[in-house]
Write a protein that binds this DNA or RNA. Structure first.
Ligand SMILES: Nc1ncnc2c1ncn2[C@@H]1O[C@H](COP(=O)(O)OP(=O)(O)OP(=O)(O)O)[C@@H](O)[C@H]1O
Length: 650
DNA sequence: ATCTCTTCTGTTTTT
DNA sequence: CAGAAGAGAT
């Protein structure tokens, strides 16, 4: 029985501290709902409260709500906030990224699509390896590998099939490589990130019974950061809510920063074309930033055309002006940031209130050095990702091969790590001996070994016996135990330990950390299945805990999306770096930047600036090391777009 | 097949 | 300046 509005208990934490527009959105009943609003206007607050409201006031079962977030971290945070409002037992179970949600469905239904239940997930490096081996097979130059990978990812994110491509004007070899790639992954029992979405969509579109089953699970679907969904994701949503149309999407077109991953701003701007009956709520108050910060950010984004203009009023006082500072080079820049960070701390901020943003991960190095030199705790969020490191990938490749022996990319990685007398020539033979999609590289290698006999044959058969043995044992073990057993049987850890260079030692540390992460996974989830841990490893990048809770955060602007900090530094504001130009040649620092690309860079700048609550610093360096060479830069256009009245040059 | 030394090549952004 | 890939020696 719905409670009439005047009976709402406004002291209920679920309904407290909401303005009229927010309240309206939170308590919207059935049917589509679009919340299109600027930065810091409380969009995430609305979506969180709305979930709680549905459960508490509409008696919706928590398990019948699906909430999609952009990152796993955002999902964790939302789960935590909803749990605070409702208690842990009433927090919805289905909260996560599109990828993690699709994976859960695919684990159940993969066989219906001709994939094994134990399929593995390829990251972009694995994809590139797969492409390279196809190029080799086709006799095409392997230099182009990344452009093929890029092409394949784009095509899949746009939801196009091979036949769509043939119609379009795409070079034939691209289509051929694309098709070979899909076939290879399938026969390897592997899916890449785009497949997780695309194949989940296929489940819903082509399998009536599965569609009904999944659709009947959810009464309400809510999506945060909707401006960064791609076509496939949007189609998934449309399938899910087909019957009840209870779809709530939340976003800001000015914060769309993932077009390179297929994100379509049109999804949010044209939402009402697909859902004409949608209720549209705009939130016009910014609660996060001081008015000077908001004024500066709003001015910058106003230089973009074709936006959906949203009035945004600062709810806070003027505060400090935005500080703009020029530096001699990137080292001075980092030192200036550290000095200013110390000032912030002396003014009462905690280290964790401070964040440093940059455009590219490579820039983090100097800041790490400078904060480290002053003994200030810091953590690098994202960055050179842990699970992508060579040694970590090697270890994981063993586990993948144990779970899924068809994974040829994993086998090619580790067949001779540590060296066991099986060389590239032998693997080439095995590859040539493969008979078709039903065959696997590992089986072919076994046959080659049998035929060869002698020393090589013996090495191969003992390698295969070892893997088989591990696979049998793994069924009875959790991930940590399998890792230890693998180290024991392969001598992998000793192999890494033999290298006593600093890099070698850090490799060993990373492998140890991997063990710890596997142990922690088992302790927190109770899942003793190696496959479950591999899924987690593929989808969730670890939050870098270096420096503990009380640490300055260093991250790319992309990683900062959705976050807020009292004290923010946006660094490297040079033409060619931020905005970044696509082809930075060695000689000239900056190439021309296209209009659309510049607009997206500007949105990125807007995201960066609007993360700041109290203090915002913008800085750049006159020269910077790039490719080991010092190059001169000039200030970013975005700096020239700042309003005089809100900034202070120091 | 393996090890070591040299060349080269390349850089957004992330699920 | 890396990190990967290639060449050449053992
Ligand atoms: N009605 C309100 N009264 C007071 N503070 C609010 C209100 N609504 C939101 N806030 C605060 O404003 C800040 C921004 O909220 P939130 O993160 O939900 O905004 P957002 O629209 O999701 O931001 P962005 O899109 O920039 O990530 C938060 O600190 C939140 O607690």
């Amino acid at each position: 029985m719905p409670i009439p509005p005047n009976d709402y208990d406004l002291n209920d934490p679920i309904l407290q501290n909401l303005n009229d527009a927010q309240f309206e959105a939170v308590t919207h009943d059935k049917g589509p709902l679009l919340i299109l609003a600027g930065a810091g206007s409380g969009k995430t607050r609305v979506i969180t409260r709305r979930i709680a409201w549905l459960v508490r006031y509409k008696s919706v079962f928590p398990s019948r709500i699906l909430a999609v977030t952009f990152t796993n971290k955002a999902a964790d945070e939302m789960r935590e906030r909803v749990a605070t409002l409702l208690g842990h037992e009433d927090a919805p179970r289905w909260m996560g990224t599109f990828h993690s949600i699709c994976l859960q469905w695919l684990r159940r239904y993969a066989e219906r699509l001709g994939y094994p239940k134990d399929f593995v997930i390829y990251d972009d490096r694995d994809s590139t390896s797969a492409v390279k081996s196809i190029l080799k097979r086709f006799g095409l130059p392997k230099e182009g590998a990344s452009s093929y990978t890029y092409f394949i990812d784009n095509v899949k994110n746009a939801g196009k099939s091979a036949s769509d491509l043939l119609a379009a004007t795409v070079r034939r070899e691209y289509v051929e490589v694309y098709e070979a790639y899909q076939d290879d992954l399938k026969s390897n029992g592997a899916m890449d990130f785009a497949d997780l979405l695309l194949l989940a969509l296929e489940l819903l579109q082509d399998h009536e019974d599965i569609r009904r089953e999944i659709q009947s699970h959810f009464d309400y679907v809510l999506v945060d950061e909707f401006q960064d969904t791609n076509d496939v994701q949007y189609q998934l949503l449309q399938q899910l809510v087909q019957e009840h149309r209870n779809l709530c999407v939340v976003g800001d077109d000015d914060q769309s920063i993932y077009s390179w991953r297929g994100a379509q701003i049109e999804n949010i701007l044209e939402f009402t074309d697909n859902y004409p009956e949608a209720k549209v709520v705009t939130l016009g108050n910014n609660y996060r930033s001081t008015s000077k910060i908001l004024e500066a950010a709003s001015r910058v984004i106003s230089y973009n055309d074709s936006r959906y203009e949203k009035a945004l009023t600062a709810m806070r006082g003027p505060g400090h002006p935005v500080i703009v500072h020029a530096n001699l080079n990137e080292k001075y820049e980092a030192e200036w940031v550290v000095a200013k960070a110390i000032e912030c701390m002396e003014d009462g901020a905690r280290w964790s209130d401070i964040a440093v943003f940059y455009r590219t991960n490579a820039q983090s190095r100097v800041f790490e050095d400078s904060f480290g030199a002053m003994g200030i705790p810091y953590r690098v969020v994202g960055g050179m990702r842990f699970y992508q490191r060579k040694e970590v990938k090697d270890v994981i490749a063993y586990l993948r091969l144990i779970v899924n022996p068809a994974d040829s990319i994993a086998l090619e990685r580790i067949f001779n790590v540590p060296p066991r007398g099986i060389g590239p020539a032998t693997i080439d033979k095995a590859r040539a001996a493969m008979t078709g999609p039903e065959d696997s590289l590992l089986m072919a290698l076994a046959r080659v070994g049998d035929q060869a006999g002698g020393a090589v044959g013996k090495r191969i058969s003992s390698f295969i016996a070892m893997l088989t043995d591990l696979a049998v044992k793994a069924k009875e073990m959790n991930a940590e135990q399998v890792l230890r057993e693998t180290f024991d049987k392969t001598g992998l850890l000793e192999f890494f330990e033999k290298d006593e260079t600093p890099e070698g030692r850090s490799r060993v540390e990373n492998v140890q950390e991997l063990l710890a992460s596997a142990r922690q996974f088992y302790e927190t989830t109770g899942l003793d299945d190696v496959g479950a841990w591999l899924d987690k490893v593929a989808l969730v990048q670890p939050l870098d805990e270096g420096g503990g809770n009380e640490a300055v955060s260093l991250m790319t602007v992309h990683a900062a999306k959705g976050l807020e900090f009292p004290c923010v530094f946006v660094c490297g504001l040079e033409h060619g770096l931020f905005p970044l130009s696509q082809r930075p040649s060695a000689a000239t620092y900056a190439a021309p930047i296209g209009r659309e690309a510049l607009a997206e860079e500007r949105r990125l700048m807007y995201v960066a600036m609007t993360r700041a609550m109290d203090k915002l610093h913008l800085c750049y360096a006159a020269t910077r090391m790039r490719y080991g060479q010092t190059v001169a830069g000039r200030p970013s256009v975005f700096l020239t777009e700042l309003p005089r009245s809100a900034i202070k040059l120091v």
